[in-house]
């Protein structure tokens, strides 16, 4: 059995991520730890977006809203002295799933550009709600006085522990996505992306499956938000801003839409470039923009698709 190039890239990527804490302590640059964590958290967000955008054909321009809601649940709980992660985290996922259900139910009534605009509008609505929440910091955001507490199981104020927790959760999310995409459910959402009229004609009520995918993606993005709150010790409305949603879309496009590990690679490259380029100039997007255009023009499948040999038969068995 030979490994596909995607598998090789995934193994190398995770091997590198696994040794980041060692590099950080050897070189005594704790910032690397911070950078790696941020990459992986956003990779979870991008993975979740890829589920609906890459596999389901639902281009949500408001996906960061679920990251923000997840983070706010942690922040608001902490504000009310509910610091147990066993309460915060499941609650965050449930709240995100509930919001995703409502937002999905509304936006999935539409298609195409209208879907994009409605997801954008709903997310911006939540952004402004966050701004107006004076009780929870409003525009300035809400500092997280204490990270989620797992009663001695794992100490998240210890930054290396948090790093490896994020690492494991990213792997877990990747595995969940792999199973989902290759299940009956996954075939239905991919079929609906490919040809919805045909799906209806062969007997699939597609709406309920798309909505379910939207809810799963919302909950997974919520997990990224929970981690982000613990990572930055801070929650603010900017997390829900439409530019954050745009970043997630770019990560997915950059890594390879509809490929399993593409969003992970995309998130990593995005953050790396952002760091490297903003060191050169304040207007780093000036360089990043053309780079993105080149990737989209010459590597339609993103960076991973570029590495992968031209697919002849993607569905061949093992």
């Amino acid at each position: 059995m030979s490994l596909s190039r995607e598998t090789i890239v995934v193994i190398i990527t995770f091997a590198l991520l696994a040794i980041v804490p060692f590099i950080a302590s050897l070189t005594e640059v704790p910032f690397y730890l911070d950078l790696g964590r941020r990459m992986m958290i956003l990779a979870i967000g991008a993975l979740s977006l890829n589920l609906i955008m890459g596999y389901g054909g639902m281009i949500s321009f408001g996906h960061a809203v679920f990251v923000g809601i997840g983070a706010y649940v942690v922040g608001i709980c902490a504000e009310h002295e509910i610091v147990s992660g066993f309460i915060q985290w499941p609650l965050a996922l449930i709240v995100c799933a509930a919001f995703a259900f409502i937002f999905g139910a509304i936006s999935l009534r539409t298609r195409g550009v209208y879907f994009i605009m409605i997801t954008l509008a709903l997310a911006q609505m939540m952004y402004f709600l966050g701004v107006s929440l004076d009780r929870y910091g409003g525009d300035d955001g809400l500092p997280l006085i204490e990270p989620s507490n797992f009663s001695g199981l794992i100490d998240l104020s210890e930054k290396t522990s948090l790093y490896y927790l994020v690492f494991v959760l990213l792997l877990l999310c990747l595995w969940i996505c792999k199973r989902l995409v290759n299940s009956r459910f996954g075939m239905v959402i991919q079929g609906a992306r490919s040809n919805e009229a045909r799906m209806q004609a062969i007997g699939f009520p597609t709406y309920r499956y798309q909505l379910t995918a939207f809810v799963i993606a919302g909950a997974m993005a919520g997990l990224a938000g929970v981690l982000l709150a613990n990572h930055t010790d801070f929650v603010n409305p900017d997390m829900m801003h439409w530019t954050r949603s745009g970043d997630l879309i770019i990560m997915v496009l950059l890594g390879g839409m509809g490929s399993l590990a593409g969003p992970v690679v995309g998130a990593l490259v995005f953050i790396l470039l952002e760091e490297a380029l903003s060191g050169i100039t304040e207007y780093w997007q000036l360089i990043f923009g053309p780079f993105l255009i080149l990737v989209v023009l010459f590597a339609r499948g993103g960076l991973l698709g570029f590495l992968e040999k031209r697919k002849t038969s993607e569905g061949e068995g093992d």
């Binding site: 299940s183 799906m199 569905g315």
Partner: peptide, 29 residues
């Protein structure tokens, strides 16, 4: 479904009439 193989195209039609598709875990192929 142009991206799917011929077999996957037809298997999806079979699946549509084999109960609900809220099955998230098992490898379909």
């Amino acid at each position: 479904f142009y991206e799917f193989t011929a077999l996957e195209n037809v298997a999806l039609a079979v699946q549509a009439h084999d109960g609900h598709s809220f099955r998230f875990w098992r490898e379909v192929r």
